[in-house]
Amino acid sequence: MSEQTDQPRPDVMEAWREWLTQTERQFNAFFNEAMNTEPFARSMGGYMEMTAAFQRTMAEGMQRYLTFMNMPSRTDVVDLGETLRSIEDRLSRIEEMLQIAAEAVDMAEDREAARREPTRTRTPAGYGTAEDAQEPAEHPQSEAVPQGLRR
């Protein structure tokens, strides 16, 4: 931002910033209009189609090459990942069951943790009646509430 001096003078940078903002707005509006047309959507769809076809051809070629070289392909790695995920899921379930078992025997550690838990009795400042919950506008901080929030 420009700094104030004793003598006001033209601020070239400020004018440049303003120009930048206006240019961005106008260009974005122009591009948005151009891109919000059927021909653009069609050409974009065509481009995505072409990219996907290229990707698929590459993947198939690579798969053949890796098989020939006796190396694992991406599909093999993904399959391995899926196996690992199922193991992870099983571990999660075991972990859950252990947690339940630990809670059942009321472990000392859990009792300690429970003691550290905060109480759940907090109320907002000024809260007293049931109506308060329906009318946040009466809250002391209500100045911060934009007009649109108030019913």
Binding site: N32, M35, N36, T37, E38, A41, R42, M44, G45, G46, M48, E49, A52
Partner: peptide, 14 residues
């Protein structure tokens, strides 16, 4: 959804 909806037009987007 504006442009995103336009680009996802089922006629062009597979």
């Amino acid at each position: 959804m504006g442009l995103l909806r336009r680009w996802a037009d089922p006629r062009w987007f597979d």
